[in-house]
Each structure stands twice: as C-alpha cells, then as structure tokens.
C-alpha cells in the first residue's frame, strides 16, 4: 500500500559512504604528520639543550681540573677539548656526533657518555616498565570498580584515595614509603639496586619499592580518568539494550563497554609516561638507584655538561617515541572512525 519506500529499504544512509573511512584516514594522516615532525622536534630539543646548558655558569674545565688548577691550565684544557671554539662550531660538532649516535665525553669520569647511559638506561627502563604495569593494572581495576559502584561508598573511597595520591608530592610519598617498609617493617631494602644476576628476589625487592612510588600519582590520575570514562559509557542506552536482551552484566562490561570506554584513557597514557620520566629523577634519588635520574643529578652537581646533554637528549627521544607508539595504538584500537569525524 505504501508506494514510496525510497527512504528506507535498500538505500544506505546518505552520509555513510563518506563518513566511514574518513575518521580513521584523517587520524592516520595526523599520525603520519607526527612521524614526519619527530626529527624536527628532536632538532629543536638538541638546540635548546645545547644552548641552554652552554649558557649555564658551569665551567667544564674547572669541573674537570678542580678548584686548584690555575687559569693557564684551564685554558690549555679548553683548547685541547675544543671548548674555546665559537658556539655554532661546537653545536655543529655536537650534532655530527649525535647523528653517529655518539653523545660525547664526560669531562670527569673516564667512561664516555654513551657508556654511562648504557649502564643507567636499562635500570631506568626496568623501573619505568614496572611502574607502568603497576599503574595501568591498578588503575584499570580501581577505575572500573569505582565506575560500577558509582556514587556508593566504594566509589567514594577510591576517589578520595586517588585524589590524595595525585596531590601528594612524590618525594614525600617516597620518604614515607622508605620509612614504612624499609625502616619500620623492614621488608624491603631502603635503597640501592641489585641486578637480576644477583637473583630474582634481590632484583625484585630492590625495584618494587621505587616502582610503586613512581606509579602512585600516575595510577591515581589514570584511575580518575578511567572511572569517569567507564561511568559515562555504562550510562549509555546501548548498555540498557544489552541488559534488556538478557546478556549478563559481566559480558556487557567486558564485551562492549570497556572497548568503547578505554579509548580516552589510552590517549592520556603517553602524556603520563612523560610525567613519569621526570618523576623517575626524584624517585631514583630518594631510593639511590643508579639510573638515568641519578646520572643526571650527578652530572648537574658536578658540572659535567656532556652527561647532562646526553641524558636530556635520550629523555626527549624516548618521550617522542612513546607518544608516537601511543598514537599508533589508538589508531589500531579505535573502533569507531566516524566519531572522530563527528566531534
């Protein structure tokens, strides 16, 4: 009886052919641009690092020869090491070394900066990975639980605790941690690092403390992001449809809600990992871990500019790389290309 069915059957929605791949493609283009931009960012970072450090009142010659060396000795040292060349020349040399992955020499220690970072970096990476795992796992569990019991006591407790750890200064948390577990309970060492070769339990107990302290603010912030995002998603109509169709709440949560809800938190992870890198400097110092942070602090204290530059460059590269990886991850995980187009 109805003569015109043009609007419904057969015909696709008018916008569908365009909106489908548009979101993803646009995002892929964005990521591509990021990748191209990365070398430029690193160039900028290297320049800033070099010039700013050069402007610091540190004199490498004095640092190397000690306070008792006279002016003549210092000038000879500077000439031997090319320290009296003009700034552009030294920067060019620095860049040329950088391209060949040489980070220069320490003026104090016998090892090259490469060797020093080669020793420190694996330790910091272990610490960061452990902290990331702890933070992601705990924030997932707590965030989802809090969202599920939104407005109830469990949610309140989680939210208050998260707010506390997000706000508390990290060095203080570190000190309290040492006080409680090392001095008070005596279950963990107060500091220092034992390599894996000394045995798993020594290695683990030396890293777990600093990793937890490093993870805490990060976990707290992530818990809040995940809680908000999951709670938002749980309130959506399609959840009601699924429950109404007889699916169990667990199936709905794991099968549908989390996939949609975790997209936002994933995009934030990259930013937080950056924050964690600066946190690592503090934590390594508090726990006396010979990682990149300790190396940097020693370098600064001793006026060893080569080390400071090397650590800063490696830090910047890792940060850029981590963020590009997170962007790519997002591209893979994002199931709804269209939503990007819409927003």
């Amino acid at each position: 009886m109805v003569t015109s069915t043009a609007t419904d059957l057969g015909l696709p929605a008018p916008s569908s052919p365009r909106s489908r791949p548009g979101g993803r493609r646009r995002y892929a283009r964005l990521v591509g641009r990021r990748l191209l931009l990365a070398p430029l960012i690193l160039l900028g970072v290297s320049f800033t690092v070099f010039v700013v450090i050069d402007l610091s009142p540190n004199d490498p010659a004095r640092a190397a020869l000690g306070v008792f060396a006279d002016a003549e000795q210092r000038e000879r040292f500077a000439a031997e090491n090319g320290l009296d060349d003009p700034l552009p020349v030294r920067y060019a040399r620095f860049l040329a070394d950088l391209v060949q992955l040489r980070l220069g020499e320490s003026v104090i220690r016998p090892e090259s900066v490469n060797d020093l970072i080669g020793m420190a970096l694996p330790i910091t990476v272990q610490l960061m990975v452990m902290a990331t795992v702890i933070a992601v796992a705990s924030s997932l569990v707590l965030g989802i639980v809090a969202a599920w019991f939104e407005g109830r006591p469990v949610d309140r407790v989680v939210s208050v605790v998260a707010a506390f750890f997000q706000a508390a200064p990290q060095f203080w948390i570190g000190l309290m941690f040492v006080q409680l577990f090392a001095v008070g309970l005596g279950v963990l060492p107060a500091g220092g690092y034992s390599p894996l070769s000394t045995g798993f339990s020594y290695w683990f107990s030396s890293l777990i403390g600093p990793a937890i302290v490093l993870a805490l603010p990060f976990a707290a912030a992530m818990t809040r992001v995940i809680r908000a995002s999951v709670a938002d998603e749980l309130a959506k109509d399609y959840v009601r449809t699924a429950i109404g169709a007889g699916l169990s709440t667990g199936t709905v949560l794991v099968g549908s809600v989390l996939r949609n809800a975790l997209i936002t938190p994933i995009t934030v992870v990259g930013v937080y990992i950056g924050a964690m890198m600066s946190g690592a400097i503090l934590v390594e110092t508090v726990f006396n871990i010979p990682g990149m942070g300790t190396l940097l602090v020693t370098g600064v204290r001793q006026g060893d500019l080569g080390i400071v530059r090397g650590v800063a460059i490696v830090g910047a590269v890792s940060f850029v790389v981590v963020n590009v990886i997170v962007d790519l991850l997002y591209l893979v995980l994002n199931p709804r290309g269209a939503e990007v187009t819409r927003s």
């Binding site: 109509d237 009601r240 449809t241 109404g244 549908s256 949609n260 199931p335």
Partner: peptide, 14 residues
C-alpha cells in the same frame, strides 16, 4: 524491550 532511539540504543563500536 524495543527502545525509542535506535541510534543510541545500539553499540556504536560493534
């Protein structure tokens, strides 16, 4: 149950 707004009542990601 058949809900009112089919757009929001279906999972956008599946």
């Amino acid at each position: 149950v058949i809900f009112q707004d089919a757009m929001t009542s279906l999972n956008p990601g599946m």
